Simulated assay, not measured.
Amino acid sequence: MKIVKLLFILILFASCSSKENHPYTFYYWKTHLKLDQEEKKVLDQASVPYLYTRFFDIDKTGGKFLPVGTITKDNSFKTDKQIVPTVFITNQSMFCISAEEIRFLAKSIHELVQKKAKEYHLKINNEIQIDCDWTAGTRDDYFKFLKELKKISGKEITCTLRLHQVKDKNQTGIPPVEKVYLMCYSTSSPLENSNKNSILDVTTLKSYLSKLEDYPIKKIEVALPIYSWGIVTNHLEKHKLINALSKKDLENSGFKKISDHEVEIIKDGFYFGSFLSKGFRIKVEEISNEQLKDVIHFLEKKIPHFNIIYYQLDSKFVSNRNF
C-alpha cells in the first residue's frame, strides 16, 4: 500500500512539474540580410528549421502598389534554416481594391518573392506569410487576396493575427488560411502617454485573448517579443522612438534617473544618434524572461501545442536570453 501511495505521489509530482517544450525560431526583419557570429550561433541552436524573413513591404501610393524596403543580402547571411518569405502589407492598400487589382497584387508579390529568392540563392520553403493589420472595413478584400495568392503561387499561405482580431473576430472575420501566427506584442501605442509597457502589457494581452480557445483556426503559432526601444518625450510631450535601447544605455552622466526605466536629460548633446535637449525624458521599454514565461503559461491553457517565433533575431536582443 505504501509503495502504491509513493508511486502516486511521484506521478503527481512529475505531472505538476513537467514543462512543455515549445520549439522555437525567429523573425528576421532587417532590409539588409546579414548575420553576425552571435546571431548565427543563436539561430543554429533554434529547434524549428525555419527563419521567418521579411522580403519587402507593400504600400499603395497614388493609386499604385509599390514594394518598399526590398531586401538586399550580405555574404555573411548563411544558414541551414529554410527561409519563410514574409511580406508586410499596409491596411490602406486593401481599401477600395478591385478584383483586377487583387489579381495584380497577388501575382506581383509571388513574382517578387521568387525573384529575390533566386537572386540571393535563398532556400525557401512552401509557405508565404502575409502580415497585415486588416480591419472590419478591409477584411473581405484582404481575404480574397489571400485566396488569390494561394491560387497563383501554389504555396501554403499563412497570415499574422493581432490581438484585436481575436477579440473582435465577429467584426474582423476569420482569414481563409489553415495556420495563423498570433502576435503577442504591440498591446498599445508607444506614442501615447501611458504607464503601461506598450510592447507587452501582460494584463492587456490576457484580456484580449480571454476567449482564444474559441478561435475557429486551431493551428496557431505564437510570436513573442524580445525587442526593446526608448521613448523620447520632449517639452511639448511629443514622442519619438529610438530602437534597441536598454536599461544599460541609461547609465550616462548626462542623464538623471527618474525611475528604474526612465531618465531626464540634464545636458544637451547627441545621444543614440539624435540631438536631445536638456529636460527631455527617455523611457526604456523591454521585455523580461518572466513576462514571456507568464504569457507562455497563459497560452498553454488556451491552445494546444504551439511553436514560438521570437521577434526579432538581432544580437542586441538575443543576448542574455534563455530560449
Rank of each mutant, 00 (worst) to 15 (best):
L224P: 01
E237H: 06
K248D: 12
H239Y: 10
N243D: 08
S228V: 05
I226G: 01
A223V: 14
S253I: 04
K238L: 11
K256M: 15
S246Q: 14
K247P: 06
L250N: 05
E237T: 15
S253C: 11
S253K: 05
K256D: 06
G230N: 02
F255G: 01
L224G: 02
N234K: 11
L245I: 02
N252V: 03
G230C: 03
W229N: 02
S253T: 15
I258M: 11
E237L: 10
L250M: 13
S259M: 10
S246H: 15
T233I: 10
H235N: 15
L241P: 06
F255Y: 04
T233S: 09
S246R: 12
G230W: 00
V232R: 00
K238W: 10
H235M: 07
S228Y: 02
K256Q: 11
I258Q: 12
L250Y: 04
N243V: 03
I242K: 01
K257R: 12
V232P: 00
K238I: 07
F255D: 01
D249I: 06
H239K: 11
K257G: 13
G254W: 05
S253R: 13
I231L: 15
Y227I: 04
N234M: 14
I231F: 01
S253H: 10
K257W: 12
L236M: 10
F255H: 01
N243Y: 08
K247V: 09
F255K: 02
I258Y: 10
K256W: 09
N252K: 08
N234E: 06
Y227G: 03
N252P: 04
K240G: 15
P225V: 01
A223H: 04
S259F: 03
S259K: 09
H235I: 14
I242A: 00
K257F: 06
K240R: 07
T233F: 12
Y227E: 11
Y227V: 08
N252D: 14
A223N: 05
L236V: 06
P225Y: 00
L241H: 06
T233A: 08
K257H: 14
I242W: 01
A244I: 06
G254L: 03
K257C: 07
K248W: 07
I242V: 05
F255Q: 02
G230K: 00
W229R: 02
L250C: 09
N234V: 10
H235A: 15
S228P: 04
S253E: 13
V232E: 01
W229Y: 13
